[in-house]
Design a protein around this nucleic acid. Structure first.
Length: 889
RNA sequence: GGGCAGUUAGCUCAGUUGGUUGAGCACCGCCCUUACAAGGCGGGGGCCACAGGUUCAAGUCCUGUACUGCCCACCA
């Protein structure tokens, strides 16, 4: 006996041991020259500032399942780990730390500040890596990357310079989204629109020629000083006579033109709109088309500029208050309404975003998008497919991407201006002199690049690009990108564009978009709501395998996951179940691996059955994993292990283990099935399977291997035996029937009863005869008789299984009325089924139109049901007589 | 305003190509049966949101309705 496992599974030490083993042995560091089809996934790089949240845990679990499975299937697997420098987020974190010391980044100066961020990363950046490690992610740690490391920075520069030279990066004045707290531009998709209860002010503008007035509606009166036009719809009869005239800006007194544009919605407000080209995206567009004056009145700090006249120096909030009061005093405020509308907020700090005109750098994504769009679905599949539509729509309506950020932490834009002649120099290497005038006073652009710029290069920059590396040749394009749908625009689409442009190939064959993890009532998890589930805490409490299994089991394609701690706790039971099944096996296996037996010709219905089922499960789990049906794979493994292997097979072989003649076969089948089952489950729950695998006996002279390097179990066609499996089901049916009778008649399960079986035919009789050894212990019998000529005591409980009558003579204090009620209930159920099938079969159009195979199956079923019913009716009749006799006697 | 999901047992969710709705947790009853009480055995509980349609047959396909959630969007 090789029992070396403790009674209850204690994941903590086991997991830590395997983590260390895999890392120390570089188990997951692939050799580019090794054989096998390439399989590669790049990790969606978590922010260095981040702590692992449940979304990461889901993402990395699914990737790990895929990678481990691919490795089992003989592929040459590379999983590249890494982190993202997360410009704004990281800068914010460090600035907050500085603030606690009473300092600002300006106090330190740019260089010292950046030094400080690097230091911060030195101190804390490894946390997230430890968390990835804790999850059991089979990443190659030797290829760890960071978006700001030297190689990736070189890639960023090369991409920037090339795109600039190709005219795909340009610098220009544009209205962008400005966060006055982060003090930087934000890309369109970095702005989150939130519903807001605001006000709609209706303000009268007098005509310059004194001939009348026009009333506009605005939600932002503080921008009135920046008005340079009033706009109405060209077909709006109310205002047609005013178009071309001039109006006077309230308080400021400037004269502005009244123009017409079909953009205006006649139904909204008053149908007249004030145009402030510098402080509204739409007005910016109007200003361009109508060649209006551009007047900036709010600065980058949210303070009114000199151009705002009397309001100069006020904050925009104070300005709003004051100008409304002034207009009201002048009698030109006609109405104030409540209005629900969407207001943009910074996705990092949640400050209200101000449209702001400034000089920024842009990538001409409008030119790059068509190729990225065309690649789906032919070159890259998006799964679930429904997301492809979203992807298309975004690319079809894309605007150029603002990539400059007015912060310090990030890739500084490789552009310099010559102080002498003003020449703009964009270069991979830091220039020393101006190529035009030779001047040496070159000033580098102050801005850094959007974090997502470097992320967009991730699939090839991590593999060493622009060098022509072996890794790139071997593993680009990557196999699949696994990520949340929330970054399909930020990241996926941009990787597609950059990958195609610089590698000439899409960056991945598949994109699998997984769910968002929500709390049990469907809310997004967030620290402020206090509903977060911390994966590390879960790992600590229940073990990593329990967490991984839970996430996998709930990862149905296209659906959000509602997670609660109770579920993880529930699946911990499953891990423990495997553990105890293994303990049982070890108690019953020899020190070295049992001698092989030909499994294709093995005797014993239970062995044939479990081997048959194993083949089906093997095939189904493989297919599920290939098709990203993670939940199906998990569920199939769960049911097989618990409901078939543990509940039935382990019980069935207990008697074998007491019989020296049957023991060797049972041992070998047990050993084989358990080992293969561990392999099937290993991608999902790597730790417990590794530990058990290691403890199982191996052939004499060999040493235990690492399950992570073992192949997926091969198919064993000789073990596919549907007939034997069906026969096993009869045996199980009989056993369940006896158990049900006991349970429902309140007979203790431990109480041994006699059992009479009246088989339906000779084949059944022979089968039951041969299977007594299985029925006896599992049904807990005192005696068993099989035959059609047996006379049963009339006071018997009974049931019918596949035409076989199951009769349990009742002795002692048993509630006989209970049995009658039980029979009635069973008959009622049968009656319902019979009615259903017969209705179908009596339906002429069913029998004539349904496929013959379906009709035959229904007929067969009807026959069985009718037969069962007849037998059960007869049994009930006998029982009634018995009751009557007892009553009379 | 547009688009996309979801609606199945008390709760959280499965249900591949249409062919007797399944699981976990919760609940009820009986069991410490020598792998596991984090367990075993048995049980109750569903006109599959609603209304039409296609079909011999619909949870499954089509149309509409009602809620719920998400994404996108330039009604100031």
């Amino acid at each position: 006996m090789a029992d070396t496992l403790p009674k209850g599974y204690e994941p903590r030490d086991v997991e830590e041991r395997w983590r260390a083993h895999w890392q120390d042995n570089k188990t997951f560091t692939p050799d580019p020259d090794a054989p096998g089809d390439p399989y590669c996934i790049v990790i969606p790089p978590p922010n260095v500032t981040g702590a692992l949240h449940i979304g990461h845990a889901l993402n990395q679990t699914l990737i790990d399942v895929l990678c481990r499975h691919a490795r089992q299937k003989g592929k040459n697997v590379l999983w590249v780990p890494g982190t993202d420098h997360a410009g704004i987020a990281t800068q914010n974190v460090v600035e907050r730390a500085l603030a606690r010391e009473g300092k600002t980044r300006q106090d330190l100066g740019r260089e010292a500040f950046i030094e400080r961020v690097w230091q911060w990363r030195e101190d804390y950046g490894h946390r997230i890596l430890n968390q990835i490690r804790a999850l059991g992610a089979s990443v190659d740690w030797t290829r760890l990357r960071f978006t700001m490391d030297e190689g990736l920075s070189r890639a960023v520069r090369k991409v920037f310079v090339q795109l600039f030279n190709e005219g795909l990066i340009y610098k220009g004045d544009y209205i962008i989204n400005w966060c006055s707290r982060c003090h930087t531009a934000l890309a369109d998709d970095e702005v989150e629109h939130e519903p807001h209860r605001g006000k709609l002010w209706k303000v009268r503008y007098h005509l310059a020629d004194g001939s009348g007035e026009i009333v506009i509606a605005t939600t932002r009166p503080e921008t009135i000083p920046g008005d340079t036009a009033i706009c109405v719809h060209p077909e709006d009869e109310r205002y047609a006579h005013l178009v071309g005239k001039s109006a006077i800006v309230p308080v400021l007194g400037r004269h502005i033109p009244i123009i017409a544009d079909s953009y205006v919605d006649r139904e909204f407000g008053t149908g007249a709109l004030k145009v402030t080209p510098c402080h509204d995206h739409n007005d910016w567009a109007l200003g361009r088309t109508h060649k209006l004056e551009f007047l900036q009145v709010i600065d980058e700090n949210g303070v009114m500029k000199a151009e705002a006249g009397p309001y100069a120096g006020l904050t925009k909030e104070a300005c709003r208050e004051k100008i409304v009061a002034d207009i009201e005093a002048a009698g030109d405020l006609l109405d104030v309404e409540e209005l629900d509308h969407a207001v943009g907020h910074c996705y990092r700090c949640h400050t209200v975003v101000e449209p702001h005109v400034s000089t920024q750098w842009f990538v001409a994504t409008t030119k790059m998008a068509p190729a990225a769009r065309a690649a789906v679905p032919e070159l890259t599949r998006i799964l679930p497919e429904s997301w492809a539509k979203t992807y298309y729509r975004w690319l079809d309506n894309i605007r150029d991407w603002c990539i400059s950020r007015q912060i310090w932490w990030g890739h500084r834009i490789p552009a310099w201006t010559c102080a002498q002649c003003g020449r703009l120099i964009v270069s991979e290497e830091d220039p020393t002199a101006c190529p035009r005038c030779g001047g040496s006073d070159l000033r580098q652009d102050e801005d850094v690049l959007d974090t997502w710029f470097s992320s967009a290069l991730w699939p090839f920059s991590t593999m060493g690009w622009p060098e022509k590396t072996k890794d790139l040749a071997r593993w680009y394009p990557t196999s699949v990108l696994v990520t949340g749908f929330d970054i399909i625009f930020f990241w996926v689409a941009r990787m597609m564009m950059m990958g195609q442009h610089f590698m000439g190939q899409v960056p991945f064959h598949d994109v699998y978009l997984h769910a968002l993890v929500r709390d049990e009532s469907g809310r997004k998890m967030s620290k402020s709501t206090g509903n977060v589930i911390d994966p590390l805490e879960m790992i600590d409490k229940y073990g990593c395998d329990a967490l991984r299994f839970t996430l996998t089991a709930f990862a149905a394609m296209g659906r959000d996951i509602r997670l609660s701690e109770a579920r993880i706790e529930g699946y911990r039971h499953f891990i423990n179940k495997i553990w105890n099944a293994a303990r049982f096996a070890l108690m019953n296996l020899p020190e070295t691996a049992p001698a092989p037996v030909d499994l294709g010709t093995v005797e014993g219905l239970h062995h044939q059955w479990i081997l048959h089922r194993l083949e089906a499960v093997k095939q189904e789990m493989d297919a599920a994993l290939e098709e990203y049906r993670f939940n199906d794979a998990a569920q199939t493994g769960y049911k097989f292990l618990w409901n078939e292997f543990c509940d039935w097979y382990l019980e069935l072989i207990k008697p074998d283990m007491q019989d020296e003649a049957r023991k060797p076969v049972a041992q070998y089948v047990l050993w084989t099935v358990l080992r293969e089952l561990l392999l099937l489950l290993h991608p999902i729950i790597p730790f417990v399977t590794a530990e058990i695998w290691h403890a199982l006996p191996v052939p004499a002279g060999q040493t235990a291997t690492d399950i992570a390097l073992e192949p997926w179990p091969a198919a064993r066609p000789a073990c596919v035996r549907p007939d034997e499996a069906a026969r096993m089901e009869l045996i199980q049916g009989v056993i369940v029937a006896v158990r049900t009778i006991k349970a429902e008649l309140n007979i203790s399960p431990a109480h041994k009863v006699s059992l009479l079986l009246h088989p339906a035919d000779d084949a059944q009789a022979a089968l039951l005869e041969a299977s007594q050894g299985m029925i006896f212990p599992l049904a807990r019998l005192e005696s068993l008789a099989i035959g059609t000529d047996l006379t049963a005591p009339r006071a018997s409980a009974s049931s019918v299984v596949c035409g076989c009558q199951v009769i349990v003579p009742l002795k002692g204090a048993v509630d006989l009325n209970g049995e009658l009620a039980r029979l009635d209930k069973e008959l009622a159920k049968l009656e319902k089924d019979v009615a259903g099938v017969q209705a179908k079969l009596h339906n002429e159009s069913f029998t004539s139109r349904a496929p013959a195979e379906v009709v035959a199956r229904e007929r067969e079923r009807a026959e069985t049901l009718l037969d069962n019913r007849a037998k059960l009716l007869a049994l009930r009749e006998r029982f009634r007589e018995a009751l009557g006799d007892d009553g009379d006697a």
